[in-house]
C-alpha cells in the first residue's frame, strides 16, 4: 500500500510540475532576458543530461568505455552529417559491439 501511495504521489507531483511550466503567465516571457533564458534552458539542461547520463552512475562518476565510445561514434556520425536514425544506430551498435567483446 505504501508503495502505491509513493507511486501515485510521484505521478501527481511530476504532472503538477509539467503543468506549472505550461500555465505560467505568458507575461513573464515579455521580458527579453527571460525569453533568452527560457530559449537557452533546453540547451543547458539537455547537454547536462547527456554529460550525466554518460559519465555518472547515481552520484558516482564512472568512465564506461563502451558507452563513451558509443557517444563518440554518434559525434563522428554527426560530423559526417549522417541522418538522425543513423546516429542513434551507430551509437548503440558501437556500445553493444564493445560490450560483446567484454569492454
Amino acid at each position: 500500500m505504501a508503495v502505491w501511495i509513493a507511486v501515485l504521489a510521484t505521478g501527481i507531483g511530476c504532472y503538477a510540475l509539467k503543468l506549472a511550466g505550461l500555465v505560467a503567465p505568458q507575461r513573464v516571457l515579455s521580458d527579453e532576458r527571460v525569453r533568452r533564458f527560457t530559449a537557452l534552458v533546453p540547451v543547458a539542461l539537455l547537454t547536462a543530461l547527456v554529460a550525466v547520463q554518460t559519465l555518472a552512475h547515481g552520484r558516482v562518476l564512472e568512465l564506461d568505455a563502451a558507452r563513451l565510445s558509443g557517444l563518440a561514434a554518434a559525434v563522428v556520425a554527426l560530423l559526417l552529417r549522417a541522418p538522425f536514425l543513423v546516429v542513434l544506430v551507430a551509437a548503440a551498435v558501437v556500445t553493444a559491439g564493445l560490450r560483446a567483446f567484454g569492454v
Binding site: A74, A92, T95, R99
Partner: peptide, 16 residues
C-alpha cells in the same frame, strides 16, 4: 547489452 543506454544521450546530442 544492446547499447540502449547510449541511445538517449546520442539522441539529445543529435537534436542539439
Amino acid at each position: 547489452t544492446y547499447g540502449l543506454d547510449v541511445v538517449g544521450p546520442a539522441a539529445f546530442l543529435a537534436l542539439l
